[in-house]
């Protein structure tokens, strides 16, 4: 590579931020960047994009039951089994794993109930939905049916989006209470996972939403709109739940 007068090419930008250039090439690029504002901005942009790509993928969480099965497979005892046995996935295994997680989660939740935190209350309601198997009070996938059902039952109103993310369906809704406040509980299916989404009235002194996280293996995500607080609980992977949250938040914007 000779002294660089023209702007950096795309391959050069990528190779530079990935540390793939030779020391000589690296110093030539650095020399060019010292005198070229547009290329310096492009390097900055590419570096940000690289970090964002890593960050998005890191948010992907491997289902704990899958990780347990794979870890078990790695043990010498498991590896002695014939190859055909390795395909552990089946409805039976899935149901067993789900029951186990539910039981462990319920036990874990009861142990922490004394804290009386909102997260525990949310988890309680979601687990009640999962374990009870009772249908929602209003059963419909039609937002024009579900939303009006809450009229007169809640001191606030909310919107439902025209379209949900791919693989997500609305199953219906329930009237419930969180910390003594009335709330709309909407039940969704994301793939084979169930998600409970709570709409509550946002108090005026509440500034930022609580930090999203994982409790007892369940993902809990929060979002605030101007008037509402939206909280979602599910065992689906966080990015899928975030997609649903995103469209729900967007639906609250003035139309």
């Amino acid at each position: 590579m000779t002294h660089i007068n023209a702007h950096l090419g795309y391959d050069q930008v990528s190779a530079f931020i990935d540390g793939e250039l030779s020391p000589k090439e690296t110093s030539e690029v650095e020399e060019h960047l010292a005198n070229c504002h547009p290329c310096a901005i492009r390097i900055l942009s590419a570096t940000q994009l690289k970090a964002a790509t890593r960050h998005v993928s890191e948010r992907f969480v491997v289902p704990p039951e899958a990780l347990s099965r794979l870890t078990a497979q790695l043990s010498p005892e498991a590896s002695k089994k014939p190859a055909g046995v390795y395909t552990l996935r089946s409805w039976t295994w899935g149901a067993l794993a789900a029951s186990l997680i539910l039981a462990v989660s319920l036990l874990g939740w009861h142990a922490t109930r004394q804290s009386g935190s909102l997260a525990a209350e949310l988890l309680d309601q979601h687990l009640a939905v999962l374990s009870g198997g009772s249908p929602p009070e209003v059963i419909s996938s039609d937002r024009h049916t579900v939303k009006p059902w809450f009229q007169g039952k809640l001191p606030f109103s909310f919107n439902l989006p025209d379209a949900l993310p791919a693989g997500t369906t609305l199953n219906g809704g329930d009237l419930t209470f969180l910390h003594g406040q009335p709330a709309a509980l909407l039940r969704f299916n994301i793939g084979r996972h169930q998600a409970s989404v709570f709409f509550t009235q946002r108090s005026r002194d509440e500034s930022e939403p609580a930090t999203s996280g994982i409790q007892s293996g369940f993902v809990i995500q929060y979002a605030n709109t101007h008037d509402l607080r939206i909280t979602a609980v599910s065992d689906v992977n966080p990015s899928d739940l975030a997609r649903l949250m995103s469209v729900l938040v967007e639906a609250q914007s003035p139309r």
């Binding site: 090419g9 310096a40 901005i41 942009s45 940000q48 994009l49 960050h55 998005v56 993928s57 997609r243």
Partner: peptide, 28 residues
Amino acid sequence: LLNISDMSPTPEDHLLRLDNQAAMDQAL
């Protein structure tokens, strides 16, 4: 065809708001 330098109108146009996780996820 790829290794060309078609710059955006201004260098700052290369900078993106990458705080939108859903958009980033979708783009990926």
